[in-house]
Simulated scan of single mutants.
Amino acid sequence: MPPRLLLLLLSCTVLLVACSHGNIKRVSEPAVSLQQISVASDGRWKVELRLQNYSTVSMVYDAVDLQVTVEGQPAGTLAGRPGFSIGPGAADVVTLDLTPTPTARMAVANALAGSGMLGYALKGKVTVTPVEGAQRSFEIDMHSTLSPAPGLTGVLR
């Protein structure tokens, strides 16, 4: 086979392969974590919930329904309807109110007073709608920790 013909054939093959890998739309499980807990003077919490979109398309976060546990103690339910869109590979925060159980309040107070770590878990579901797609629910089972924020009274991050 002449070199020119081989080069032309190779170039056409590379071009066809490059064109066949268009913009792939992939819906991936979102990540959810507590970004911050702010304790109000009446003991209620303002919880900043971080929503991370790992999909290759924008997703509308329709609803969150999560059981919160701190230091192994049930704290309550974080439920809300954010209703906003998060772009591919991006994150955003929704602030939700939570009236914690007395045992959860004590666990947070101990972490704040002792400048220690606070272990937490989120378990439940997040409902999202991908752009040009059908609504889907994802099960969440996440464990992490928060620490007192230096200089901010009553705040864990």
Rank of each mutant, 00 (worst) to 15 (best):
L112I: 08
L34A: 07
T99I: 12
N53Q: 04
T95I: 04
S55P: 00
L34G: 03
L16R: 11
R26F: 03
L6Q: 08
A104D: 03
Q36N: 09
S33V: 03
C12M: 15
G80E: 06
G80M: 02
P74K: 06
A91H: 12
G80L: 01
L66K: 03
T103I: 04
L9D: 02
Q135R: 15
P130H: 00
S33M: 12
V128F: 00
L51Y: 08
A111F: 00
A90Y: 10
W45Q: 04
S144T: 08
Q52T: 15
A107E: 01
E139Q: 09
T13V: 14
R4V: 09
V155T: 03
Q35P: 01
E71V: 09
V94R: 04
G133L: 01
G124T: 11
D92L: 00
V14R: 13
E139Y: 07
F138I: 00
Y54W: 10
M59L: 15
M142K: 11
D97Q: 10
V64M: 05
A63C: 07
V17D: 02
E48H: 01
E71N: 13
S137L: 09
A79R: 15
S58F: 03
M106Q: 15
L112H: 09
L98Y: 07
V70Y: 06
L15W: 13
S38P: 04
P82S: 05
